[in-house]
């Protein structure tokens, strides 16, 4: 067992973990942060995406011991005082989710993308979330959501493309 100190969604934690414990299992099983989920075992699906020290990572491909001394933000930590993050809001507005299993990772990856590229084109969004698989939506409404959020975060939210209307 190795002792680690990790700040997760603003809360400091000191825990003993086996070195082989994956960050996602630490989050889910030791901290009860079950909003972050596991979708594969080969680092392909991105469902487990969280932010580690400010960068989006796949928490199934990081050891918990590697987060020692670090700061983790999960899907449970991005709404501030009950106000949804613009990306969360946009996923809802634009119907960017169906079953919702990929959604936490998709949202965390999208936030990371927008930090680097605040005004991505459709192609840039598609490539920016290439590490996250969704089986339900066909991605189109996710792309719309990310672009909608980009607009809102830029403070000049363009009129939302009418959802439900045909494109």
């Amino acid at each position: 067992m190795t002792q680690i100190n990790v700040r997760v969604d603003g809360v400091s934690n000191t825990d003993d973990v086996e070195p082989r414990t994956l960050l996602v299992h630490y989050l889910r099983e030791q901290l009860g942060k079950v909003g972050t989920v596991v979708g594969c075992d080969t680092s392909n699906c991105g469902a487990c995406t969280v932010h580690l020290d400010g960068a989006a990572v796949k928490s199934c491909t990081v050891l918990a011991v590697q987060a020692d001394g670090g700061e983790v933000t999960t899907i449970e930590g991005i709404a501030q005082e009950g106000v949804l993050h613009p990306v969360q809001k946009a996923f809802h507005e634009m119907h960017g989710l169906q079953c919702g299993y990929c959604t936490p990772g998709m949202i965390m990856a999208s936030i990371d993308l927008l930090k680097e590229n605040p005004n991505p084109s459709e192609t840039e969004v598609r490539e920016g979330i290439e590490g996250n698989l969704c089986r339900c939506t066909g991605y189109q409404n996710i792309v719309r959501a990310v672009q909608q959020a980009a607009g809102e975060m830029a403070g000049s939210a363009p009129a939302a493309e009418t959802t439900g209307a045909q494109s």
Binding site: S43, G46, T49, A55, A56, V57, K58, T61, V62, A109, D112, L113, G128, E130, G131, N132
Partner: peptide
């Protein structure tokens, strides 16, 4: 190479 999350690590 892979995707942005993988490229971060």
């Amino acid at each position: 190479v892979a995707d942005r999350q993988v490229r971060a690590r």
